[in-house]
Design a protein around this nucleic acid. Structure first.
Lengths: 143, 143
DNA sequence: TTGAAAATGCAACTCGGTTGCATTTGAGCC
DNA sequence: GGCTCAAATGCAACCGAGTTGCATTTTCAA
């Protein structure tokens, strides 16, 4: 049993979820990736070690997002990306997405300026803040 | 000819685009809406005055975004929304989207804190900043 | 008026994601 | 070890947003 599998099981059980093989595999695959992958890319990664249907992946992602273990973000292409929710930290972080290769990377926590409730009309409640910077990554710029 | 139609024609010609009936209709419908609609909602609105195919709408939206007349934003549901690009102003503005009714509204220009190139890894170029606050709007909160 | 280019419509398609339902798995119990 | 039942998974069919290819219509210049 690898460390990452142990971590994955710990987070699942801590959230009151059964540590099934696919859930562990999803968390391991996600932790091993340096960015926030689209569903298809994550599915490919998981399948290198575990058989998994795409429906199971989507249901697993829903579950893990619901449990607060993962975060879901919208890409510029309209497809969802998922990344590990930083444990114990609640300052939102933004993402950078390359318009050429589509890779989405996590950024450090945002300055609190985005807490900007001042911008909002009265009577609304904010549950989630999404900040995405779109541009060209270093790799694509050179290639 | 209404004022909004005149405005629409002006913006189109200023951008070097032909002021065709559907383009004018799209701009008028968009200017009349108090929020940034999804394509289907915009199509419904346009069709109250003009016959239009959905493909034509999508192509028109592409064109107007390309020309800088409209801005395209990604909703929490992954569908695109469009709003008028504020003329002559280039500070990005964010959006609030209600997670219940899905309505996306434009916010005032963002504090410059988001210019946060400091957050970025070296070698990347930012072309577009997307800020979206998700929550519950006043109307949905009461209803 | 006419001819070419641009704009539009229509049909079929892609892609990300979801739903319904049958089957398998696995934790708890004997 | 073998049961049992709920939860987890797989499979097929589906849905909605957006796209592509191509035929038709409109528009503008000559």
């Amino acid at each position: 049993m690898t460390d990452s599998a142990t971590d994955a099981r710990a987070r699942l059980e801590q959230a009151g979820l059964e540590a099934t093989p696919r859930r562990v595999a999803v968390l391991e695959a996600l932790a091993a990736l340096p960015h926030a992958p689209a569903a298809q890319e994550l599915l490919d990664a998981v399948r290198r070690t575990t058989r998994m249907d795409k429906v199971t992946l989507y249901r697993t992602l829903d579950l893990l997002v619901e449990a607060g273990i993962l975060q879901r973000h919208t890409g510029a292409d309209g497809a969802f990306r998922h990344c590990m929710a930083p444990a114990g930290e609640n300052a939102p972080h933004g993402h950078f997405q390359c318009t050429r290769c589509g890779v989405m990377t996590c950024l450090p926590p945002l300055p609190e300026a985005l807490d900007a409730a001042a911008l909002l009309p009265a009577g609304v409640t904010v549950e989630h803040v999404e900040v995405r910077l779109d541009g060209v990554c270093g790799r694509c710029r050179q290639g």
